[in-house]
Nucleic acid binder design. Structure first.
Lengths: 342, 342
DNA sequence: ATTGTTGTTGCAATCGGTTGCAATATAAAA
DNA sequence: TTTTATATTGCAACCGATTGCAACAACAAT
């Protein structure tokens, strides 16, 4: 197993040309059946493996998909990655994964790496901060497809894969209103990102439709970390009057906020009803169980990769498709259910 | 931005040879300072980017690390991935990630993919089922370094990166014994894997050292999924007498088991004290908070990549290093603390 | 016997960098 | 002035697979 076997070695062995060997191994129709069989047998026997660099160099295609993700270690994003990996693997594509850690700087560097790696396509979920698309232009102008998922942006050459954040937030807020909440606070993140902007909008429309006043001081913009949840709770405790409903843009912050409120003696859902977002495992563990929006991460990953590969194979065209919206649903649990009202 | 710029284009532009251009861009010492400067300037200006396939083809090196992981979507593994990505990115390496989904079949396919992709090194955490190492032999005999992390196996050419599972389990079990538990049940997984075999061993030694009898029916082998936790709870409820202590090999199963027990009216920790493993976020959310073993996933990922790259750069030799053991610690929380005993 | 068709194979160029060795220029030493 | 050392640069082969085009054989159609 010292030196690598090449098609030249196989060719010499069978007294054929490298051309024929190459064709045989790629199942080209213009090769005699017997010859093909013989070549494949010998190849297997000699332990041949194709040199993908030579192949890529020649074919100008890499069979590699680049993924830029804000953070790998969140339950939602790791589900997305798992779904992507499965689909990519099925279609014989490799995945190169990098994380932006929510900074635009790293996102730009990552994009550059992907570009240099000549990925066949790029899947991106934007960092909190990102406010320019310049780093994706090289892909566009080279014709490399770019698909945004979850944290997306409008671009006339790129498909976006999302859930209906407006709708989800609208329903979540309406649900709180139905439970009798009059002063609903919204804890969310950077408004540059569609997911948070849309949710805020959904929240506002729901307030209007339920004849509740909108109060700017009832919208807290944070990074939705565990700590942010705690801080939000401390702020809430100081409010006069306190909110009686809480709609948080992710479960991590919702849970840590709930716990901090509980520590201060607040009863959930009676004093404050809470709704989260994502349906992370913790939402089913916290007491009372957290009402949340189920967010199909795994499917989102699958769909993203599948769309990309379809496009690469010419089976569809993502420059035409604008947006793919996946179904999400409000899962009502005890954290927002006021039995007395029901 | 239509056609890619090559070193030939730059060469022509400056009336130099491609050789010199290549050398200049790689900061080769045998190139005149001024020439180098000029070349770099033009390259930047023309938007040149190196074709890594041509380069890899010639250099027989890929600057890519392969990672095989059982599942991407677990809090522990996604932390490991995050740590790996950070370190790899720092050192200008790419990561190709695949998941075995706990089957040996997929692990073998993945290894094959990695081999074909000619990764410079391989990081592996074994699937539950795996019981042969044949699929890693091609790497070994080609001199491609392989490092195992977490779910490891003894191999005289490979370094393993682990925590001291024996020690951790020993401490966890002793802790339960100190809390007055006399009948401690151990819920764990496939004994093919070091992590679970070592923990069982730690559990057994702890029983001995605390003068507690070992009972085979008190060791449940499962896949540690959420469902497995529920089933374990149902089994436990049927036991006569019931265990009064529970040491579970991960937090997911520990939590779902606890909840099922609580549903049946069991008081935790008074009727049954529980210890988990991993320090997942849910362990801090469940009521009562789960005592668990803190498991440095992020660091493990960092260390794995760092060791690999050091080896690749000749700064160390992983065929000499046998095992790198990271620190872990028992985090005592309410799920195992019996105040009356304290 | 001639032309056409189909099936199979090979030639040679190509993808874009890298590198051993030789060539040349320039400066320093004899 | 000649010799030797040093600094720069280029030639040409190479890495391994792919592919347009031509070549050739075998056989059918005319």
């Amino acid at each position: 197993m010292d030196k690598d076997i090449t098609i030249y070695d196989i060719a010499k062995e069978l007294d054929l040309s490298p051309t024929t060997v190459s064709r045989a191994l790629n199942d080209h129709p213009a090769v005699n059946k017997n010859t093909k069989q013989k070549i494949c047998d010998i190849a297997a026997q000699m332990g041949y493996r194709s040199n993908i660099f030579a192949s890529n160099l020649r074919k100008q295609r890499t069979n590699t998909i680049g993924v830029i993700v804000p953070r790998l270690n969140s339950p939602f994003m790791s589900s997305v990655m798992a779904g992507m990996e499965k689909e990519a693997n099925n279609a014989d594509y490799n995945l190169i994964i990098t994380q932006s850690l929510e900074t635009m700087q790293k996102e730009i560097t990552n994009a550059r790496t992907m570009f240099d790696s000549r990925v066949d396509g790029l899947l991106v979920s934007l960092a909190y901060e990102t406010d320019t698309m310049d780093h994706f232009e090289p892909f566009i102008s080279k014709g490399t497809p770019v698909i945004f998922y979850d944290r997306v942006i409008e671009h006339n050459q790129c498909t976006s894969i999302v859930i209906d954040n407006f709708q989800a937030a609208y329903k979540a807020t309406c649900h709180l209103a139905k439970q009798g909440c009059k002063r609903i606070l919204h804890l969310t993140a950077n408004q540059k990102r569609n997911v948070y902007a849309d949710r805020l909008k959904g929240y506002r429309y729901a307030l209007i439709d339920n004849n509740l006043p909108f109060d700017e001081s009832f919208v807290l913009i944070t990074n939705l970390s565990e700590e942010a949840g705690v801080e939000a709770a401390q702020q809430i405790l100081k409010m006069q009057p306190m909110p009686d409903g809480l709609f948080v843009s992710n479960d991590t912050a919702a849970v840590s906020c709930m716990r901090e409120l509980q520590k201060a003696g607040i009863m959930i859902p009676d004093d404050i009803a809470v709704v989260g977002f994502n349906n992370d495992p913790i939402s089913r563990v916290i007491e009372p169980n957290l009402t949340t929006v189920n967010y199909p991460g795994y499917e989102m990953g699958e769909v993203a990769v599948r769309s990309l590969i379809h496009h690469l194979n010419g089976l569809s065209d993502i420059t035409i498709t604008n947006t793919i919206t996946l179904r999400s649903e409000l899962i009502v649990r005890a954290s927002s259910l006021r039995t007395k009202i029901e």
